[in-house]
């Protein structure tokens, strides 16, 4: 079955295109790629990118060039819950490395890896603009800030659909 946005989402694409002057629909590329990633499994497959190229009347390479440039676009499948831990200077000063280690302790995954059940992917990312609330991670749309071991426990429990266990 070939890929297609729902009618509602197609309407949203038209609204995005309308933010830019006539003939400048290429400007809609970043927002439409966000939408496509959200709708088609959390990552951008070549098929998804080709579909977006068609929607915006672009050459596929123009879409690949952009999709591979920006760190928020995922070019490989990721787990259901993507945990992106900020590791840059200010977060590092406040213990981001210990957070990465603790996630490994809990889930057995290092940055770049996904749990066997496909539930979690761990990534380290560079500064997310939450330096005053360090250490932190981004989970989908949300920032999880002032992280502690307990907060990681809670986060994992809520994503796994289980109550937080007294792990430690």
């Amino acid at each position: 079955m070939s890929l297609r946005f729902s009618d509602n989402k197609l309407k949203e694409v038209q609204q995005i295109i309308a933010r830019y002057p006539e003939g400048r629909q290429k400007s809609a590329l970043l927002p439409v790629l966000h939408l496509a990633q959200q709708e088609f499994g959390g990552w951008l497959s070549p098929e998804t990118m080709d579909y977006v190229a068609g929607l915006l009347q672009l050459q596929p390479i123009e879409v690949y060039e952009v999709a591979t440039f920006y760190s928020m676009y995922k070019l490989k499948p990721v787990g259901k819950h993507l945990l992106e831990v900020c590791q840059t200077g200010p977060c590092m000063l406040n213990g981001s490395e210990a957070i990465v280690d603790y996630i490994y302790e809990r889930l057995g995954i290092r940055p770049g890896e996904t749990t066997a059940d496909g539930l979690f992917t761990l990534k380290t990312v560079e500064c997310l603009g939450a330096c005053g609330y360090a250490p932190m991670l981004q989970q989908g749309k949300h920032y999880r800030e002032h992280l502690t071991r307990e907060k990681i426990d809670q986060l994992i429990a809520s994503c796994s659909g289980q109550p937080a266990s007294a792990h430690h």
Partner: peptide, 8 residues
């Protein structure tokens, strides 16, 4: 154009 500069 089918080729370009990918990644960064």
């Amino acid at each position: 154009r089918v080729h370009g500069v990918l990644d960064r």
